[in-house]
Amino acid sequence: MKDVLYFAPTELTEALKLLAQYGEKATILAGGTDLVPRINYYELKPEVLVYIGNLGLDYIEQSDGKLVIGAATPTAKIAASPLVAEKAAALAEAARLSASPAIRTAGTIGGNLANASPAADLATPLIALGATVVLVSAKGEREVAVEEFFKGPGETVLQPGELIKEVRVPIKKGKSVFLKLGRRKAMTLSVVNVAVYVEMEKGQRCVDARVALGAMAPVPLRCKKAEGVLQGCVLPMSALEGAEFLDKARIEKAAELAIAESSPIDDQRATAWYRRKAGKVLVARALAAAAGVAI
């Protein structure tokens, strides 16, 4: 870990220049909570570290109907933000339940995404909320949907020289819910986590539903089939017309489909069997809470 070139630029352009200059040799350092353990344990020997904590990428704003969160915003700040709690409840909850206080003060939203763990807690709510990430490099800027950002465990669409600048979360009318199961109450990686977004027209007809699962596939997963069976459904007592009733059976059907789309594995934390069983319960519970259905 010695003899690393360490840069702490204070301007984004400067950082991008460094990233362009060193290309694949450069490693971005944000909160360091994923990266530093790997360096400490000699697994990783970066040649050039570019610290991005001084670039002014620590912000939570509302603009153009979107919640805009700087990539270097610590998880703790997201967990404590009233704005996030109001506009993106599932994200706030995921932030609150991730890691532990002294990790959340350092760990960032950008790092959580770029690290691309299948169990990353902030990824599922961002997928359910239809968020995008803004990627910048010396060559320019592009915007990618979070659900298309991940390619595999530890793999993303990020190119050498590119960094996540911010996350944009569309502010919508519906309700989002995040649920997580781990092997203990605190400081635990997700054995399975679920985020859903449901929008009910007049509180009665489902006009938008999104379901995302974490730790259930090589990447955080969006479950489109599950979403499909919820579209247009109405609450059983509703006066509105709908394709089908949005009731306990429908929600369980959606949960089943979501699990069918996943491909969980056995690991130290849980077996695939358990992940499927508990994941289904979690999806159903989250959907029921978001849609206002008793199950």
């Binding site: 909160g31 610290y51 002294a102 990790i103």
Partner: peptide, 11 residues
């Protein structure tokens, strides 16, 4: 509060 073991001293 931060973990001093995860904090590169440069920070």
């Amino acid at each position: 509060p931060v973990r001093s073991c995860l904090t590169p001293v440069g920070k």
